[in-house]
Design a binder for these strands. Structure first.
Length: 874
RNA sequence: GGGAGCUUAGCUCAGCUGGUUCAGAGCACCUGCCUUACAAGCAGGGGGUCACUGGUUCGAACCCAGUAGCUCCCA
């Protein structure tokens, strides 16, 4: 081992990751141990590692490593998601660069390119996860579009179809004109957009000779050609005269009815609404109610079609301006005003969503959602933090049918088959489809498969089962052993997209939810609280961060400030803190490694330190355990951090450290090595690399090939003795007081000072005399019974301590200090006395609380008495 | 418009069933130290009207109501 002053993570990282892989430590096969399973939320194949992945996978790795060390059969299944629309968009763009237009390719040719792309780039993110130390069972790596997983998807479609959950119909869907596909509601992101409200005049017919018109406010003038009615509120006196009349659509002069419906908001705009059933969801519903014609004037790509009669072929946004101009020229544009409103955008392509009527496949959700809601409500699936339960409930209780078809090629093609009459059947293969047609007495002529593929979430919903092939072979050893999995770590944004659907599918197939706990991480933001994004350029590259601060440092940095469900205000300062922590451990190790061992007895300080630290260790493990049990991972880390830095380094090691060039007692050395080894195990889940690196140092002797920190037994809390711990806490206070004194009086730490103790608490300070001398640079400890003239004094608990300073003491300053303390205690005493004098308190409060107040009173009084004596002695 | 949540030190956050000296932690800050493990460090220190206003209670950061500000989700 090098004796470099700072820890150098680079070589350790590559070395140990490779070693673990070679030894097969990440591999999991069912056996008779308790399983602990996590399925990784599969990143998109298009993805590159970003800070969100970093956080998410670090948490998973901490959980899985700890479980593994606890002797569980830990299985972390990695994989990637085919991400239909994102990947297809990427491949289309790539082809375009090569001068290839998707339109010129057959489905098969396109898919060939797509697979080629996937093989080339699809594994990047998994490779990056290795840098992070992810201890996944890579032999189990899955991809949502590989044959068996696709098979599971198709089977599920057929299964749900046969059960009546899947249907086909014309509905208003969210249309992405750029991706040219339907999207589910969850894939639409609403944003506030500055728009223009156009006030458009429609001529009214049948008002006699006087030409009359009504004015309608709209943000979408380009859709007027698709209007099939004008609607007014029947209670609106302003428009009573319009009842039963008709209006003319501007520019094209098509006659449309004026209908009445209370749906119309009289306050908004002019109180007149244009009804465009083909291009607005609410208008569509209105149209259904009033039996209106539906005129769809848009092509799939968002350009106007010939039904528009005008501007055919022009893009909707360009057409908006053109129509406005035409209206103006025709004198039918009354005015315009700025207006803010919510507009939907495609999550993947960021194109403005066009509500569009189209034939799609849907999954009926209400019935399926019921058990999935119950699991969460009754706690069989725990959401962490539980504040998400109400959000989940709200969504599940108001769930709508799910649009599952996508007009894309990259994905699982819907197993529906059509004949030339457009009749259809659902079947896995063409042969089965033919048989079904024939059985129904229908023609099989021109049989062809549905062009659409299934929504990606349909396949990721099966993920916790399909990775174990659990839908196709529900009794296979893997699924029986690993399902339900233990913990799922994911982001709240996809609670519905993904988590809910996994629970739904899990219940459907196995009557059991797919996991027991769902740990919801926050969003990684920059320190100003902004979401990290490419356009802002505020997202650091995790790979570079790891190179700079070391993987362990970055892992610690990520976790330090990320309680579950809270957004993380990321700042590289946290990584720096993580790096410094690694360095601290490194240097503690250098200290121990440098010791020369001799056959000498342990000193008193060494003896007391080892005794205390053993108890403290057990206490710390219990604390950390408690944090982990409640999934307070950042707290578990902080407890570990403080335990290692403060208790181990600042107290234990300083106490046992031999004087310069002096040897250490073998007994103490061995104890220290044991503690150090346990510390390495404790930090391993958080800091896998440095712990493994040090584990193999020759200090610990020969290790067998299999003897790694990674698979060592995680420490468990033994009993700890409270009195030992509380006595030591007093000792620590005494030492701090003396150091403080020195600091306040500007006395060099090198100047030894004598200490006299007047103990009345019963603590045996003789035991600690040497420890105090060593830690506070005290020349001699004596025991007295009060009155140490010429000394400065302080109290710790009931015990009095006198330090005789080399310089003469400043009596006035001492008097002031002590008086201040007495004043404080008197104030405190007053409050306590007030409580005790209050009859209702004594009567109502719990007896132990009252007793406690009496103790506080007695303590304060005793302290005051002693301080007054000190004052008198000055 | 409907739903959920947040507001505690300069920053990021803890604070379980109201009851010790309960106002905490880490970082940052200030002071003094190159003490031969570590200046990526050591020792010490300062810092908050617990958003605001009322209420309940013997007692409120904690429970209730209202106000203000912020965030997220759904429409």
């Amino acid at each position: 081992m090098s004796i470099s002053k700072t820890y150098n993570p680079k070589e350790a990282e590559d070395k140990w990751y490779t070693y673990w892989m070679e030894k097969g430590f990440f591999r999991s096969i069912p056996d008779d141990r308790e399983p602990y399973t996590i399925v990784m939320p599969p990143p998109n194949v298009t993805g590159v590692l970003h800070m969100g992945h970093m956080l998410n996978n670090t948490i998973q790795d901490v959980l899985i490593r700890r479980a593994r060390m606890q002797g569980k059969n830990a299985c972390w299944v990695p994989g990637t998601d085919h991400a239909s629309i994102a990947t297809e968009a990427k491949v289309v763009a790539m082809l375009k660069e090569q001068g290839i237009n998707k339109k010129d390719l057959t489905r098969e040719q396109f898919l060939e390119h797509a697979w080629e792309w996937k093989e080339k780039y699809g594994g990047i993110i998994l490779k990056q996860l290795e840098k992070l130390g992810a201890s996944c069972d890579w032999e189990r790596t899955k991809f949502t579009m590989e044959p068996d997983l696709s098979d599971a998807v198709i089977d599920t479609f057929i299964r749900l179809y046969r059960k009546g959950y899947i249907y086909r119909g014309v509905r208003m869907v969210n249309w992405d004109p750029q991706g040219r596909t339907a999207l589910s509601d969850e894939e639409v992101i609403r944003k506030e957009v500055n728009q223009t409200l156009y006030y458009v005049r429609y001529a009214v017919k049948g008002t006699g000779d006087t030409p009359s018109y009504l004015t309608i406010a709209t943000t979408r003038p380009e859709t007027i050609m698709a209007d099939t009615a004008v609607c007014i509120n029947p209670n609106d006196p302003r428009y009573a005269h319009l009842k039963g009349k008709t209006a003319l659509v501007p520019l094209i002069n098509r006659e449309i009815p004026i209908i009445e419906d209370e749906y119309v908001d009289m306050e908004f705009g002019t109180g007149c609404l244009k009804v465009t059933p083909a291009h607005d969801l609410n208008d569509y519903e209105l149209g259904q109610k009033h039996n209106l014609e539906v005129i769809d004037i848009l092509n799939d790509d968002g350009t106007l079609n010939d039904k528009a009669q005008l501007l055919v072929g022009e893009d909707r946004f360009k057409a908006r301006k053109s129509v406005a101009k035409l209206l103006e020229e025709a004198g039918q544009l009354e005015k315009t005003e700025p207006y803010k409103s919510q507009v939907g955008f495609s999550e993947r392509t960021d194109a403005a969503i066009e509500p569009k009527l189209s034939m799609q496949w849907f999954c009926r959700m209400q019935e399926l959602a019921k058990p999935a809601l119950d699991y969460v409500v009754n706690g069989e699936v725990k959401l962490i933090p539980d504040k998400f339960i109400s959000t989940y409930r709200h969504w599940m209780e108001n769930i709508k049918d799910w649009t599952i078809s996508r007009q894309l090629w990259w994905g699982q093609r819907i197993p529906a088959w059509y004949n030339t009459q457009n009749e259809w059947v659902v079947a896995k293969t063409e042969a089965e489809a033919r048989a079904l047609f024939e059985a129904e007495g229908k023609s099989t002529e021109g049989i062809r498969q549905e062009e659409d593929v299934l929504d990606t979430w349909f396949s990721s919903g099966l993920w916790p089962m399909s990775v174990f092939d659990g839908t196709r072979h529900p009794d296979n050893a893997d699924i029986r052993y690993y399902y339900p999995t233990s913990d799922l770590v994911t982001a709240p944004e996809i609670l519905f997209f993904w988590v809910a659907r996994m629970i739904i599918f899990g219940h459907e197939y196995r009557g059991q939810p797919p996991f027991k706990n769902v740990y919801l991480t926050g969003i990684v933001r920059d320190k100003l609280g902004r979401k990290m994004s490419k356009s802002l350029g505020n997202s650091p590259d995790p790979i570079e961060l790891m190179a700079q601060y070391g993987t362990d440092g970055v892992r610690v940095g990520m976790l330090l400030s990320s309680p579950a469900g809270n957004d993380l205000m990321f700042d590289v300062a946290y990584c720096e803190q993580g790096r410094n922590f690694a360095n601290k451990i490194w240097n503690a190790f250098r200290l121990v490694k440098g010791w020369e061992v001799a056959a000498i007895p342990a000193s008193s300080a060494q003896h007391e330190a080892a005794s205390w630290f053993g108890h403290r260790f057990n206490q710390a493990i219990a604390e950390i355990e408690d944090h982990f049990t409640s999934y307070r991972i950042s707290d578990a880390l902080m407890a570990t951090y403080k335990f290692v830095w403060d208790d181990f380094c600042s107290w234990y090691l300083e106490l046992v450290k031999p004087a310069y060039q002096q040897p250490i007692a073998k007994e103490t050395f061995e104890a220290t090595k044991g503690f150090f080894e346990a510390v390495l195990k404790l930090i391993h889940p958080f800091m896998p690399f440095i712990s493994e690196e040090l584990w193999h140092d020759e200090l610990f002797g020969e290790r067998s090939e299999q003897d790694c920190c990674m698979i060592a037994e995680y420490p468990t809390a033994g009993v700890f003795d409270e009195p030992t711990l509380s006595d030591f806490a007093v000792l620590q206070q005494v030492i701090s007081e003396i150091r403080n004194l020195r600091n306040a009086k500007q006395i060099s730490p090198k100047t030894p000072l004598p200490l006299a103790i007047h103990a009345s608490s019963g603590i045996d300070f003789k035991r600690y005399a040497e420890s105090i001398q060593k830690m506070a640079n005290v020349s001699a400890v004596s025991f007295a019974d009060g009155k140490q003239a010429g000394s400065t004094s302080f109290l710790v608990g009931k015990d009095e301590f006198y330090v005789s300073l080399a310089q003469s003491i400043d009596a006035d300053a001492e008097r002031e200090r002590i008086t201040k303390e007495i004043d404080y205690l008197n104030g405190f005493l007053k409050a306590v006395n007030a409580k005790l004098a209050n009859e209702r308190f004594v009567q109502n409060a719990k007896p132990e609380i009252v007793a406690n107040e009496r103790n506080k009173k007695a303590d304060a009084e005793a302290k005051i008495k002693r301080l007054e004596e000190h004052l008198a002695n000055l």
